[in-house]
């Protein structure tokens, strides 16, 4: 019973993520549209909002780059459905392949050696699933379909600890501004600080799962997020990199403690089409798409 529900819910989540932009992102885009002064910049945001409305009402993909389907599974260690983790992986792959035809999604997985595209969004390690055990009695599956244009603008910097937070802010601003219009601004800037090379990038990507406009619970981190956002929007790069006051919609920081000799900084940008959907399996066996 729950198997059927789970499979359907995953299908629905893939569809929802591809076609309906979460309301926190739409709201942020509307605020940006109101704030822009030039017709050019305003026009970009108006086109984006109009596009999202066409996609939502017509159940069409928001962007032709429907992305690489990336799933984050957070399994509560007290969940009575932990044994389902075995089938969740298979269901995720099936839902991805079926949704590719049903929605449709663009076939976006390519063999790096032969260049062949199997046409179903499957392939070695695709869709990518990030498994994690957490406290609690629920299983939460978050889908983050992410386009190539923004992913190409990711960066890892192993900063010298001596540069401090000032050097880190400078590195972020320089990088995001240098990306220009390529990641489809206004972007959501995910930053992972500390840990190590892999951890910093992983945290940066995970930072994108947060709602746009949410702040880190720790005041020091929250204030860094606000400050970097303000600095980025002073640059004048603007929507789509053609000038304006909205270069980023949000900056989300996640961090880990670092090695004394290292200050890793992971930067992962998300385009304005910050598509997300969640499937929750509650302790009493309900399967919900959020």
């Amino acid at each position: 019973m729950i198997d059927r529900q789970l499979k359907d819910a995953l299908m629905q989540a893939v569809k929802q993520a591809a076609t309906i932009l979460p309301s926190d992102v739409v709201d942020a885009l509307k605020r940006a549209e109101a704030k822009e002064r030039s017709d050019l910049a305003k026009g970009q945001l108006s086109a984006i909002l109009k596009n999202c409305e066409i996609a939502r009402t017509g159940a069409l993909p928001i962007c032709q780059d429907t992305g690489i389907q990336t799933f984050f599974v957070e399994a509560g260690m007290s969940s009575p459905y932990l044994a389902k983790l075995r089938v969740i992986g298979a269901f995720i792959a099936e839902a991805t392949a079926e949704a590719t035809v049903a929605i449709p999604l663009r076939p976006n997985t390519v063999d790096p050696f032969t260049g062949k595209n199997p046409g179903d969004n499957l392939g070695r390690f695709m869709p990518y699933i990030n498994w994690e055990l957490v406290d609690g009695d629920e299983i939460m599956i978050t889908l983050l379909p992410k386009g190539g244009g923004s992913e190409n603008m990711s960066a890892l910097m192993m900063l010298t600890p001596g540069v401090g937070m000032e050097g880190l802010k400078e590195a972020v601003v320089d990088h995001v501004v240098a990306c220009g219009g390529k990641p489809c601004p206004p972007t959501i800037v995910g930053l992972g600080i500390g840990g190590g090379a892999d951890i910093a990038l992983k945290l940066a990507k995970r930072a994108l799962l947060r709602d746009v406009g949410s702040r880190h619970p720790e005041p020091v981190v929250a204030s860094l997020e606000g400050e970097i956002l303000e600095l980025l929007n002073m640059s004048g790069l603007g929507p789509m990199g053609i000038g304006g006051v909205t270069t980023a919609l949000a900056v989300h920081v996640e961090y880990a403690f670092r090695h004394p000799a290292a200050l890793p900084l992971g930067i992962v940008l998300q385009c304005w089409a910050d598509r997300r959907a969640k499937v929750r399996i509650t302790a009493d066996g309900r399967v919900e798409v959020i």
Partner: peptide, 13 residues
């Protein structure tokens, strides 16, 4: 020429 990136549904029209 530049067209709004990501506006795939709008462009399709």
């Amino acid at each position: 020429t530049h067209y709004t990136g990501g506006a795939g549904a709008l462009a399709a029209k």
